[in-house]
Write a protein that binds this DNA or RNA. Sequence first.
DNA 1: TGCTTGACTTCGTGTTGCTCGAATGTTCTA
DNA 2: TAGAACATTCGAGCAACACGAAGTCAAGCA
Lengths: 140, 140
Amino acid sequence: MYTIKEVSQKTHLTPYTIRFYTDKGLVPNIQRNKNNTRLFNEESIGWLIRVKYLKDCGMPIKVIKHYVDLYLEGTDSLLPRYKIILEYTHLAQKQLEDAKKRVKFMQHKVKHYTELINKTNGNTSDIINTKECLHDNFIR
Amino acid sequence: MYTIKEVSQKTHLTPYTIRFYTDKGLVPNIQRNKNNTRLFNEESIGWLIRVKYLKDCGMPIKVIKHYVDLYLEGTDSLLPRYKIILEYTHLAQKQLEDAKKRVKFMQHKVKHYTELINKTNGNTSDIINTKECLHDNFIR
DNA sequence: TGCTTGACTTCGTGTTGCTCGAATGTTCTA
DNA sequence: TAGAACATTCGAGCAACACGAAGTCAAGCA
């Protein structure tokens, strides 16, 4: 059994967030000791990690709660759960594509800036295209 | 010159968001006509798109505002701007890695669910490892 | 001319998902 | 015995929008 601080270190979630999630019912079967302190076991940690994954896929807290409730219903809820997972798998894939574009965008900017800084340090005379390459819509 | 609705279609940002961004000063040199209506040109649209990229990299509105202000200062601010871009390029790369992990996680779940559903539809007798593969920490 | 429509404006409130501080309590250690 | 180091709840605050209400204005039309 772990305290909230230990779980925080294991999951890289803040104690605030962990309390928030448990209060929302996203972590089933949370125990308390006589001092009312939350007690987590390996299962709770697993849930927290999975909740984090789902949330980062763009799943709202309410949907995660719904998914957890479905799980607790047992195998009867396999299909609805599967549908939810499928939906957010598509979202996760879209996020991946977007992330690739963002990295390219940023690397483009980095390249632009390094060139510009090199020029400014060297012969400052040839800063072409005043206002930093106005033809390039990704720059500025 | 474009109205807010046209810009909304071009940028895939809602009019609410566009107003929010212009009010925060993230889009330089926004004009108004005599009716006080915001008028956008190609430059404004470019800024909105870039703001969206930066925001999606995890850059907070305040930092974007700071970056835009630095840009308006001219070439003197090249180095501080470059440092900001570099910082968030790293963040974008981390996001990309995380996005890959999330897709793997979700695909893992999809695979698990399809197997489970097939079993349940076919010979329902061999649902092994009661409670849906308790050994696999990514499942549930 | 007068009226309706529609797209814009500002302003203020609501939402999500945390984040934090304050007040309080227990337990361990010097 | 005091205080440090945890934990608790509750309520407020914050970021980044989302949205409705109320007002303004130009264009179109009977």
